[in-house]
Design a protein around this nucleic acid. Structure first.
Lengths: 239, 239
DNA sequence: GTCTATACCACGATAGAC
DNA sequence: GTCTATCGTGGTATAGAC
C-alpha cells in the first residue's frame, strides 16, 4: 500500500546505494510532468534531468505513456485505497444508519489532502497533475483512470445512493459525476482562478481552505430536490 | 455576431466559389481537433484533409497554436456575446429586482445549448472541445480562454453577487469557479460518464437533458449556507 | 539484466523559388 | 499565394557493450 511497495525495492545486498535508474526516471518524470503536462514534456528532458540515458526510459517503462501511468499509479493507488478504507471505517461506525453526504464527501477529500500535505510541495502539484489528467482527451489516460477509479467510484456511488434514497439511481450517478467534475477541475485549477477573481494570496494555494469551501457547495447540490418535468419550462423553454 | 462575420467574407466579385484555402483549413482543423485534441492532431493531418499544402496552414494562421485559437474564437465569441446579451435582457425585464440563481444559470446554458443544436453533430462536439480546452495545461490555451471569458465572467459574478447578497464576494467568486468547473467537466465528458454508471443510451449524448440535471445541482450549491468556522471540525479534523 | 549509442521516421516551422 | 526542400526536435526500436 505504501509507495515503496510499488517501486522496485533496492536489493538487500547493496548498502546505502543511490536511487536506482528506474526510480530516478520516475522522480524526474513526476516533477516534469507536473510542471509542463504530458505532451509538453519530452523523454529527452526527463532522462537528462535524471542523468540517465535516453533509452533507459523505454527500457524500464516501455513507452512514454506507460511511464506517465507509472507516475500516476505510484501516488494514486495508495490514495484510492485510503479513500475506500476511510469509507469502510465510517460505515462500520455508523452501523445500520446511512452516512450523510458530508461524511461521504470528507472520505473523498481527506486522503487527497493527506497526499497534498505529506509530500509538501510535491504532493500539492500532484493533485494538479491529477486534475488535468482527469480532463485529458488522450484515450490512454482516460482508459487508465477509468480502471484506476472504477472500484472506488462504485463504492461511493453505493454510499451516496444510501444517503439519498429518494433519488433515482440514475440521478445519483449524474450527481456523482458532477461532484467528480467540480473536484478535479478545482484541483487542476490555480490558473483558472485568476480569470474569476482576485483572492487573498494566502488562500489560492491552500488546498484545505479550498476544499472546505467546495464541500458544502457539493453537499447542497447532492441534496437538491429532483427537478420535476413541470419545472422544465423555467430552464430552457426560452430563446 | 453570426459566424460569417468572423470568417473572412468571400469577395463579391467571385461568384459561387469554393470555400477558400483559409476556410477549408479552419473547417478541417475544427473537426480533427474535436476528434483528437490539440496535441494529437498534426498539421499534416489537417492540411491533407483540407486538400491544401502543409505550408499553407502556417502561412494563413502563423502557427498551430494560432490556428487552434482561430477555431475556438469562431464559435466561442458569438456564444459569449449571446450569454451577455441574454443576461442583459433578463436584468432589464427584472427591473430593480435581483435575478434568481436559476435564471442566471439558464443565461449561461441556453447559448451553449443553442450552439450544440445549431450545427447538429458539429456543435455538440465543439462543446466537448471547449470543455477540454478549459482544463488544458498549455499556457497559450489558458491565457487565450482567460481573455475570451474575462468580460463574461465579470458580468456573471456581479449577477450572482446580487442574487446572493448574504455571501461574501470571495465566496461568490469561489462558487462561480465551482460552477464553471462542473459545467466544463460535464461538457468535456461522455468518456468519463462510462466510468460512473450505465445510463440510458439516448441520454448520454443529450446535452439538453444533461444540463437540466446539472442546473438544479448547481443552483442548490450556490445557495448553500456559508460554512461557519465552528463547522470546520466535522469536515477535516480527523485522520 | 542493465545500460548505451545510434538510427529512424513524424512532427512544427521556415526560407526561398515560382 | 502556393509549393518544395530542409532544419531541429520529438518518440521509439534495436544492436551491442558490460
Amino acid at each position: 500500500m505504501a509507495i515503496s511497495a510499488i517501486q522496485k525495492p533496492i536489493r538487500i545486498s547493496e548498502v546505502a546505494v543511490e536511487a536506482d535508474t528506474k526510480s530516478r526516471i520516475l522522480d524526474a518524470a513526476e516533477e516534469l510532468f507536473m510542471e509542463h503536462g504530458f505532451e509538453a514534456t519530452s523523454l529527452r528532458l526527463i532522462t537528462t534531468a535524471a542523468a540517465v540515458n535516453l533509452a533507459a526510459a523505454n527500457y524500464h517503462f516501455g513507452s512514454k505513456e506507460e511511464l506517465f501511468q507509472a507516475v500516476l499509479t505510484r501516488r494514486l493507488d495508495p490514495m484510492n485505497q485510503d479513500r475506500m478504507q476511510l469509507l469502510t471505517n465510517y460505515e462500520t461506525a455508523a452501523g445500520n444508519k446511512a452516512l450523510t453526504c458530508e461524511v461521504i464527501i470528507s472520505a473523498m477529500f481527506i486522503p487527497a489532502l493527506k497526499l497534498a500535505r505529506d509530500h509538501e510541495q510535491g504532493g500539492k502539484n500532484f493533485l494538479r497533475l491529477l486534475g488535468r489528467a482527469y480532463a485529458d482527451p488522450a484515450p490512454f489516460i482516460r482508459e487508465f483512470l477509468s480502471n484506476q477509479y472504477a472500484e472506488m467510484i462504485a463504492r461511493y456511488r453505493a454510499a451516496f445512493a444510501r444517503a439519498l434514497p429518494h433519488l433515482p439511481r440514475e440521478e445519483v450517478s449524474w450527481r456523482l459525476h458532477f461532484v467528480m467534475g467540480a473536484l478535479s477541475y478545482t484541483l487542476a485549477g490555480t490558473d483558472a482562478l485568476k480569470m474569476i477573481a482576485q483572492f487573498h494570496p494566502e488562500e489560492v494555494n491552500n488546498d484545505e481552505l479550498l476544499l472546505k469551501r467546495l464541500a458544502p457547495f457539493l453537499a447542497a447540490g447532492l441534496r437538491a430536490p429532483l427537478a420535476q418535468a413541470s419545472d422544465a419550462h423555467q430552464w430552457f423553454q426560452e430563446t
